[in-house]
Design a protein around this nucleic acid. Structure first.
Lengths: 189, 189
DNA sequence: GAACGTACCTAATAGCTTTAGGCAAATTCC
DNA sequence: GGAATTTGCCTAAAGCTATTAGGTACGTTC
């Protein structure tokens, strides 16, 4: 019999594709085995278990997102950087809904520490350097931006804005305008 | 044999409690049957299937949230209303994490139409009446507020702000200050 | 007290997860 | 090049969840 050439990496990548096709929740070890035309038990030499698979897909998604964000930020500052960064999240969620869901998957502390989460936070801080905030306001703003981006993208992809006017794109643009204005005139206590 | 007295309502309520205890994802027809000390098949006279159970828990959570929000808004306006409303979401998520997750569960169009989703949107608009926005800006602001509240609460309960200073409570207060300031000085295009 | 409806049960099928142990292909070593 | 070893994928099996079909006995109604 010809070997399938399974590796943890190929499995995780295929798992990410599967997530985009059928949804992250539907990613199962069984479905992945079917995709490689291999028996289920064979995957357990490469993956600890089902949770391990999902964690690795989450880590992959976080890395991909951070890479895209880093590209988008290169050479930009101020509102330009803010917009480019925000669009990375929104576009990624649209192109890769399963991966985006994976990126929001709760990670245990070790996985979280090894994740690209820190890069995301650092990039957000880099954007805020274009505005005039100092600690602890910068941290509050980091949290606000994370909340808005995640919240908007998640509500939008759940269909929340689909059946009402105006267009979601218009709201997105205006929300980014508003955030820019807010960061320029951040209220001091 | 003594009958257990199952009804759809009791099952859904128990399912909501179960969600808060073990997480919404772990809510299964089997676990619910165990909780009533009844065979699994018995539940299928009261629930269509597992998805039906989860949908009903989601609808329950949305109603509870809307009820709390309506109470909180009574007699308030302006920033006072904004803060009270926002705290309803945050407090509910802390007290009832499983139900809160359920409330964010994707609903099919019929379920969504029958849900308290419309009440939530109307209440958000009521708050914005305390600020000077007119369409389409009011809708953009509705979407922004929904995004921030959902995003913040979801990142916070995923532990996102747990291991860094300053305290999440402080950021929450400052984020609400910032939103209030933003709504009072909403940028026109 | 008989007849009926219904609440819960047994039984069975099917899918996903995970572990244990086996064979054969690939790799290493002489 | 062939033997020894490693390792990749397999079969088998047990346990859990979901769901359906059909049966029994409880509670209600007349």
């Amino acid at each position: 019999m010809v070997r399938a050439g399974l590796t943890p990496d190929r499995l995780v990548r295929a798992g990410a594709e599967l997530a985009d096709e059928v949804g992250f929740d539907q990613v199962t070890v069984s479905a992945l085995a079917r995709r490689f035309d291999v028996k289920v038990a064979s995957l357990y030499s490469h993956l600890r278990n089902s949770r391990d698979l999902k964690t690795r897909i989450a880590l992959l998604a976080l890395e991909e997102l951070a890479d895209r964000a880093a590209d988008a930020l290169a050479g930009r500052a101020g509102k330009d950087a803010l917009t480019a960064f925000a669009n990375v999240y929104r576009d990624y969620a649209r192109e890769h809904p399963g991966r985006y869901t994976a990126a929001r998957h709760p990670l245990d502390p070790e996985a979280a520490a090894a994740s690209a989460g820190g890069r995301h936070a650092q990039m957000t801080r880099a954007i805020l350097r274009g505005y005039d905030l100092s600690e602890p306001d910068e941290t509050h703003a980091v949290r606000l931006l994370g909340s808005v981006f995640h919240g908007y993208v998640s509500l939008e992809s759940a269909g929340g804005f689909r059946h009402s006017a105006p267009d979601s794109q218009e709201s997105w643009d205006r929300v980014l305008d508003a955030l820019d204005a807010l960061l320029r005139a951040w209220p001091r206590p």
